[in-house]
Design a protein around this nucleic acid. Structure first.
Lengths: 135, 135
DNA sequence: TTGGTAATTTATAACCATTCTAAAGTAGAG
DNA sequence: CTCTACTTTAGAATGGTTATAAATTACCAA
């Protein structure tokens, strides 16, 4: 089981000890064939189903935020009561179906953004995110 | 004072009676030279300063949402604890300085978005929003 | 292996933007 | 003017997220 080594490595890189709970979270996040979008509540259900153990919300929040800060997860900028995360950390964009609260990736190569103006006040551009709302 | 007529018209169009409080909100929103971005808390301060009267949060939330639904305000899709609104209802995009929680408009003509893929599941594209994060 | 200690997990409380509620006040048609 | 439906308001409720503090666990050194 090489994946385990990667999980431990990711956690260490994020400044976290590889505990049972955190490894269970990593398995549910990174052992899937496809990347996916999730909210914390949804991830709680996924991890508890995959691992057959209860896990506290606080641990989920802490771990997800640490993994995000280290770049293993992306937080998606959509307005709403719940925060969405993405296991796809490549630069890409999203369709968003507000009615279903559902996201679909748009690969960076499949969209064209150009002619960007300079950032104001001598600031630097950190990211360019396109959100395409669909109905 | 013709502006007043417009405010009454806007409120009626939004299905709202033109009360003192709602007119005060409209004045603070639409009598400015420049469009601007605001949160509800910030608007409360602006309206109370402009009108020299207290106004309840509930009235602000109700009125702003009705004006938004009628298209006189835009809600901006940025993740965060507070919701941002925009008195600029023209199609446009934003720079966002997360550190300052500050927005700057990007005119639609000053940015190029093209080559959009089709929306999935036979859905229709409702809007395309570009958010440029700056640091 | 064992201790000791610092990190971690957890349930629960706190937080805070937003929405709801219900009572008092107001607008406006007739 | 009057009546009724709409509004305003303070405060309570809601719900996602963060903070807290006590019990548990990881892991280094011996």
């Amino acid at each position: 089981m090489d994946q385990l080594e990667f999980h431990i490595e990711r956690l260490r890189a994020a400044g976290l000890r590889p505990t049972k709970q955190r490894l269970a979270i990593c398995k549910s996040l990174f052992n899937k064939k496809e990347t996916f979008h999730f909210t914390i509540e949804k991830l709680k259900k996924i991890v508890e189903k995959d691992s057959r153990k209860k896990i506290s919300l606080a641990t989920l929040y802490n771990t997800v935020h640490s993994l995000k800060n280290r770049g293993y997860l992306k937080e998606i900028s959509i307005k709403g009561n719940k925060t969405f995360f993405d296991t796809n950390t490549k630069h890409h964009h999203h369709f968003y179906d507000e009615r279903m609260s559902q996201l679909v990736d748009i690969e960076d190569k499949n969209i064209l953004v150009g002619n960007l103006p300079k950032a104001p006040n001598g600031k630097k551009i950190k990211s360019v995110e396109v959100l395409v709302k669909i109905v």
